[in-house]
């Protein structure tokens, strides 16, 4: 199962090899050209000699994670987040450490031993450590070195009514949508870029867009969702099971109105549910792509992801399927000349 394999693979920002190898194996039989750039982004090209417009589709391979920054005499390890993590939720979580994927537990001082004032504040990074069961620094160093990475150990499971949980739907769900899409045939030149280092500042996407110089770009994301109890409508951002979310304004992008309008019309015509992403917070690779070179017409299609940037993220598999359908419908419409963009509009 694609989503299980993808979400359980280890891929901190800058350490995406495992994910890249998995995607490469899955995509290679369908690819015309395959290559990586010097940052590690994986490119899959199809029909590059077909009549345009050339469409770049991207999803990022990296996930929020941790780096080991020090090992204490006790064998307990100090760590720092790679990407945006809410430090308050880390205590007692299980992680996988280093290349070998050793189990570790994020520990802290026991609640019984905390002073009253300590209990009143969430634990901070300096009060947390990763415990791999080593009894000394020397023993820990036989398995782990400073600079090694760690990820949440959550496995993929399907839960409830067509939902699933995993550690990394942001953005392996986007990678899965791209993989399903690249197995289909379109009479368009298509570049699928599985980008790196999105979580630490959209670093992989700009070189990918510069290199491929597409006419149109579509980014697939797992995006923030807060549809729990007591959240007013204007605080939700997105809702699970209401279809893929289309971004209008976020922290790094104001949408290209005509392309956004086109995508929403395609969704309506194909009876695919969609929703607007109703927050200006957060960003995705569109922020880097649309400002590349002379400007690139771009859009984001996102799968609402509850508890994003946390150990157990939850999505609706129906939203996932609808995102796959929407991407296909949009590419079909472009294939049929339904969206034309002239870069120099007189």
């Amino acid at each position: 199962m694609l989503l299980k394999q993808l979400t359980e693979a280890v891929g901190p920002s800058g350490f995406e090899t495992q994910v890249r190898n998995l995607i490469y194996k899955e995509a290679n039989p369908f690819a015309q050209n395959v290559y990586t750039d010097s940052l590690g982004t994986l490119f899959i090209e199809k029909n590059m000699t077909a009549k345009g417009p050339k469409v770049l589709l991207t999803a990022h391979m990296d996930e929020v994670s941790f780096m080991i920054v020090g090992i204490e005499e006790t064998g307990l390890m100090r760590f720092r987040p790679i990407g945006g993590v809410d430090v308050r939720i880390l205590v007692s979580k299980v992680v996988l450490v280093g290349d070998k994927g050793l189990y570790g537990v994020i520990g802290s001082k026991a609640v019984h031993l905390q002073k009253k004032e300590e209990r009143e504040h969430p634990l901070e990074l300096d009060q947390l450590f990763i415990d791999i069961g080593a009894s000394s620094k020397q023993e820990a160093e036989e398995h782990v070195a400073v600079g090694d990475i760690a990820v949440f150990a959550t496995t993929y499971e399907e839960i409830g009514d067509e939902c699933a949980k995993s550690k990394s739907f942001d953005d392996r769900v986007g990678c899965a949508v791209l993989l399903e899409t690249l197995k289909k045939d379109f009479a368009l030149p298509l570049v699928f870029a599985f980008t790196v280092q999105e979580e630490i500042g959209l670093r992989g996407a700009a070189p990918a867009a510069y290199r491929t110089n597409p006419d149109l770009a579509i980014v697939l994301e797992g995006t923030v969702c807060s549809d729990g109890p007591d959240t007013p409508s204007h605080g939700q951002a997105t809702q699970v099971d209401r279809g893929p979310a289309l971004s209008v304004v976020d922290a790094k992008t104001i949408a290209h109105r005509d392309f956004l309008q086109h995508i929403s019309q395609v969704a309506k015509d194909a009876h695919i549910p969609y929703q607007w992403r109703r927050t200006i917070g957060g960003a995705n690779d569109v922020g880097a792509i649309h400002l590349t070179r002379e400007g690139i017409v771009s859009a984001a299609i996102s799968i609402p992801t509850r508890y994003i940037h946390a150990p157990s993220q939850v999505i609706s598999l129906r939203d996932y399927k609808h995102a796959v359908d929407l991407v296909e419908a949009v590419l079909r419409s472009i294939e049929q000349g339904g969206f034309v963009n002239d870069k120099n509009m007189v």
């Binding site: 290209h256 649309h290 400002l291 002379e294 017409v297 963009n341 120099n344 509009m345 007189v346």
Partner: peptide
Amino acid sequence: DVFEDVLGN
């Protein structure tokens, strides 16, 4: 010459 780009400049 007068023209517009994809961002609207």
